[in-house]
């Protein structure tokens, strides 16, 4: 028999990297989803149709109107494709935040807190929503259709701008999801209003933000910086503006993650002091 107080083998000193751990989480999530293939397939299809109906709306409106505030049908499609892709990427990766209320309600956030890793990493890992590829497919199809037809003389700068838009927008939406999750620490009621900033922005972001008026443009520039990943860089891409600064504005939107994270930290601290 072993001596009860014998020293155990030395603990691993090397910490598993966050990226490796996240990849492992993703792997697990994908395997879980594959357990229900039929359901997964239906959800992908459903996700496709949700955004397809918005596309149909744009299509039918432009059958009647041909342009809005000087934007052509193809330019609007480019705009919607970008927003949709950003949103779907953020929703796929940050779905753990988007569905965080159930984690608080069922108490599984306690499990997160008894693990020696960063909470954000664990919450991100808790849910990787592969079904959002349905929506990405929709965005991709619109890109394929609109990119050659929107009358843009594509060059390196414009392609980079589009890439920056995707990066900045994904970060922005992830930040909004994080804020939503942080609210769950304070109340589980009435979180519906955050839909304005998530689903609302995705759906109404189909038109460049100045379509909604000057005040909305100001709101989207300084309050929740949608315009930084949508209106300004889009203007540069479609040639409405040649201000080279607009290429980099989407990257500025990444800074939105800072206040989001601070608010989240604040929420975690409050959870630990109230325990509810």
């Amino acid at each position: 028999m072993k001596n009860p107080f014998s020293e155990k083998p030395i603990r691993s000193t090397k910490k598993t990297s966050a990226l490796k751990l996240w990849m492992r989480y993703v792997g697990i999530n994908v395997r879980c989803a594959m357990q229900y293939k039929m359901s997964f397939f239906m959800m992908v299809l459903g996700q496709f149709f949700v955004s397809f109906s918005v596309f149909l709306g744009i299509y039918f409106m432009f059958q009647r109107f041909h342009s809005v505030k000087g934007y052509s049908y193809n330019e609007v499609l480019l705009c919607y494709a970008t927003i949709l892709m950003e949103f779907s990427l953020a929703e796929m990766t940050a779905r753990g935040f988007d569905s965080f209320s159930s984690m608080v309600r069922t108490g599984s956030f306690d499990q997160v807190l008894v693990r020696p890793r960063n909470e954000v990493l664990q919450v991100l890992g808790s849910k990787f929503e592969l079904t959002r590829i349905g929506r990405m497919l929709q965005a991709l199809l619109m890109f394929v259709y609109a990119i050659p037809r929107c009358g843009v003389d594509w060059n390196f700068a414009k392609a980079v701008t589009l890439l920056f838009m995707l990066i900045g927008g994904t970060a922005l939406f992830s930040g909004i999801f994080m804020i939503y999750a942080a609210f769950c620490f304070f109340t589980l009621e009435g979180l519906e209003f955050m839909n304005v900033f998530t689903d609302g922005a995705k759906e109404h972001g189909k038109y460049p933000i100045d379509v909604y008026g000057k005040k909305m443009l100001l709101f989207g520039t300084f309050f929740v910086p949608y315009a930084l990943v949508q209106y300004y860089p889009l203007c540069y891409v479609i040639g409405k503006s040649d201000n080279p600064l607009y290429i980099f504005l989407p990257l500025l939107a990444i800074l939105f993650l800072i206040p989001s994270y601070l608010f989240w930290r604040f929420g975690v601290r409050r959870y630990c002091s109230s325990g509810s």
């Binding site: 397939f41 239906m42 959800m43 459903g46």
Partner: peptide, 8 residues
């Protein structure tokens, strides 16, 4: 798959 039916 009720969720799938629902979202469709």
């Amino acid at each position: 798959s009720p969720q799938g039916v629902r979202i469709l």
